[in-house]
Design a protein around this nucleic acid. Structure first.
Lengths: 202, 202
DNA sequence: TATTAGTTTAACCATCTGGTCAAAAATAAC
DNA sequence: GTTATTTTTGACCAGATGGTTAAACTAATA
């Protein structure tokens, strides 16, 4: 009974995730989610009270999934450059498995910025961790002087943006061949780090 | 008569742009657009047959607005590095005035990739122009060897991504002070180019 | 086996939404 | 000033959509 419950709930979450990611919060239809999950529409409301609640569940699950890995990288006992290598590698690697997460999350935040408040603590702590790391590196003269905020935005931009622009890039630069694009992204796991390090190395 | 016609049509386009950018294609309501334009809802259908048609008009106007400037930069008689400087400067400058364009366009393409086909020619030509430019620079040994596709994606990532992540970045890194963020972006108009050049300079 | 609690379904509802239409208002043409 | 044309409006509609409800089904329990 419990197994069945979790099963249905999980099926709904999976289906909802798929539909919400593809159609967005407003574009998604409860009926479509139900169909995707192979259940009756009423069940959606039975497990999650409303469309909004369901969306929130999906959204926060997606978000929490993409956050924890980041902290680990920074706490490791590595050189600054190796931390950058590790960060970009794992970050890009994670998005290879979840390519629609970035645009899904950023789009939702963009059209509904208030939700950041709920997350400020979680994410804020981690970004500060990283900012401090960079500040230290600049202070210790390990890298060229640079505004840590510029560097961290550069870092994240280079990792995340290709996934947001995937359909466009794939069509324009990769002849609509997904293989080409994935191959390109695979190389980025290493190249992004070297691109950055090249730029800030003394 | 013509003046009034253009006026109303323009009012609608402006209002539609605002609402579509904020709410997205599916989330936008015709009534809200009408209200925003200060007119009757039926007028929307009088000028633009349907919501889809209206959206297309807004979308393509937005897109065409963001494209032409790019070509000019590349055709100028400048060194490769100065072209990068010029490109990043003007690109970021343009998005300062149109901060919601990137996520609007990319989000729409993401949830509706077919539309690229209509645009492939226009944009494709320009990105090829740039790719060739880079290939030449590599061949002539002006810069370190790098996959031109990686470089162009880096270039665009660094320019565009901050606008997509604006609400998130503003909250987490800039204490929700828009001034701080704008100031940061303003500096990027120059810093991005130097960051890139530092990395690829021999 | 009867009872109970949890799960699933089908039918239904109120509201919203894009869209139509005929008439009124405004403008242009004569 | 009258007619023709274009623009604008308000009332209306059909279909979609999120959500409700009561009944049916399932399975564990006593």
């Amino acid at each position: 009974m419990n197994k069945k419950l979790e099963n249905t709930e999980e099926k709904i979450l999976q289906a909802a995730k798929q539909v919400f990611m593809k159609k967005g919060r407003a574009g998604a239809r409860m009926q479509e989610i139900a169909d995707e999950a192979g259940i009756n529409k009423s069940l959606l409301h039975y497990y999650f009270r409303s469309k909004d609640k369901l969306f929130e569940a999906v959204f926060y699950e997606a978000l929490n999934k993409s956050l924890p890995k980041i902290g680990n990288v920074l706490n490791a006992d590595k050189s600054f450059f190796d931390k950058i290598r590790s960060f970009t590698y794992h970050y890009i690697d994670f998005f290879i498995d979840n390519p629609y997460l970035p645009i899904f999350i950023l789009n939702e935040i963009s059209s509904n910025p208030e939700i950041i408040i709920k997350l400020a603590d979680q994410i804020g702590a981690k970004s500060n961790l990283f900012l401090n790391e960079i500040t230290t590196a600049v202070d210790k003269s390990i890298i060229k002087p640079i505004d840590p905020r510029q560097l961290i935005i550069n870092l994240i931009s280079l990792c995340v943006f290709p996934f947001i622009a995937k359909p466009l890039a794939q069509a324009l630069i990769f002849n609509n061949e997904e293989k080409e694009f994935l191959n390109f992204i695979e190389k980025r796991k290493i190249e992004v780090a070297e691109f950055i390090i090249n730029s800030i190395r003394k």
